[in-house]
């Protein structure tokens, strides 16, 4: 594991030395701007509530369609090149023949992806201290912390999925499409499936609700830090990283 810092620097440099990452961050900044604008207007309206469930701040990110659409696009865009690009350009061979293990390669790429993902969340978080201190709006910080933790582990899972698909192919577009399809299924189809299951009063409604990303985000957004969701995210991330290591081992031997 001692090579991870070096490999991580290499991966982060490859993100930030190109225009792609900055463009994606700019796009997220634009989404955050619109979201925050909407939030400020909502908070200024008469807000009579008996619980935090309808608090606009609780749905600031978790209930924002532009945020999730942005995620659907950004995650494949950020992860598709992690391994596929190296395979296409042939730089994977020198990397795998260097005295580094597949685990180190995979973990460093994953950490770089997660780092980049967290940078995408910064624009959304940036406004809140201004609202709290400058606007003297003493909102409940707990739900924001809970959502931050939840979105972070969610990102770890998404990046691991993207990394796995990137390792399967040398074509970045194929990797992006596979990642998009999987993340779309987790974000959109799971919610639609839950709605259908509830309508049909199916026994599996609770199970599909448990894996629905939007439900998880909404739970985190209301201030409930459900460790079961964190466990699910980290489990999927570990499994995907393990499979990615196996794919790279297979490539090295093949």
């Amino acid at each position: 594991m001692r090579h991870i810092p070096t490999l991580l620097r290499r991966e982060l440099a490859s993100y930030f030395l190109g225009p792609m990452a900055l463009l994606v961050v700019l796009a997220f900044q634009a989404i955050a701007l619109l979201n925050f604008w909407e939030l400020v207007e909502s908070l200024a309206r008469n807000n009579v509530g008996y619980s935090g469930l309808r608090d606009p701040l609780n749905t600031y990110i978790s209930g924002s369609p532009p945020f999730w659409i942005g995620m659907l696009v950004a995650i494949p865009a950020l992860t598709m090149r992690l391994v596929a690009e190296e395979r296409r350009s042939g730089t994977i061979e020198p990397l795998l023949t260097a005295p580094v293990t597949e685990v180190e390669v995979v973990v460093s790429k994953w950490l770089a992806g997660v780092g980049m993902y967290l940078v995408l969340l910064v624009p959304f978080a940036l406004y809140l201290p201004f609202l709290y201190y400058q606007g003297h709006y003493n909102f409940d910080v707990g739900p924001v912390v809970s959502l931050g933790i939840g979105l972070s582990t969610m990102g770890m899972m998404f990046v691991a999925i993207g990394l796995f698909f990137s390792s399967l192919t040398r074509n970045q577009i194929v990797a992006a499409v596979l990642t998009f399809a999987t993340v779309f299924m987790m974000i959109v189809l799971s919610s639609a499936g839950y709605a259908y299951a509830t309508y049909r009063r199916a026994a599996w409604a609770e199970a599909i609700q448990f894996v629905s990303i939007l439900h998880q985000a909404s739970t985190f957004g209301t201030g409930q830090l459900d460790l079961r969701f964190l466990s699910l995210h980290l489990s999927v991330a570990v499994l995907m990283l393990y499979l990615t290591v196996k794919v790279l081992e297979y490539r090295r031997e093949g």
Partner: peptide, 17 residues
Amino acid sequence: AFRYGGRAIDLTRDGSF
């Protein structure tokens, strides 16, 4: 964890959960 994981950690100010 799902079956026996217990309740979520409640981070709300008023302890709603």
